[in-house]
């Protein structure tokens, strides 16, 4: 495997990821996911509302992939920022943890 074609793979991956970031806020289903949906069917209503009132242990800056007051554009930006953050962290991890030549 050549380094050059792996860089092409990287660029293709970034392009696909950013395309998904732009499309997801418009195309992704707003329905609850499998776990949330299961919870709404099998957990008693009173307990469910208690669980929903519980705040997450840590306040996330872009909760639910949105940025306050920025609407759909904010959602695109949030997913794009997350994508680039994952990219940077994976690259950084790779450089630190790669096998020593």
């Amino acid at each position: 495997m050549s380094g050059n074609s792996n860089m092409k793979f990287l660029y293709a991956g970034i392009a696909i990821a950013l395309l998904l970031a732009v499309l997801a806020p418009f195309l992704a289903s707003p329905d609850p996911d499998g776990l949330e949906s299961a919870a709404s069917h099998v957990v008693e209503k009173s307990k469910l509302s208690d669980m929903e009132e519980n705040k997450p242990a840590v306040n996330a800056p872009m909760a639910d992939y949105s940025i306050k007051g920025l609407g759909k554009g904010g959602e695109v930006a949030a997913i794009a920022v997350g994508t680039l953050a994952v990219l940077a962290i994976s690259f950084g991890f790779g450089i630190i943890f790669k096998k020593k030549a």
Binding site: F9, L10, G13, G82, S90, I95, K98
Partner: peptide, 13 residues
């Protein structure tokens, strides 16, 4: 490393 990073970013998105 580029393959790993591309997959991680793609999976996040």
């Amino acid at each position: 490393i580029p393959i790993l990073a591309a997959l991680a970013a793609g999976i996040f998105a």
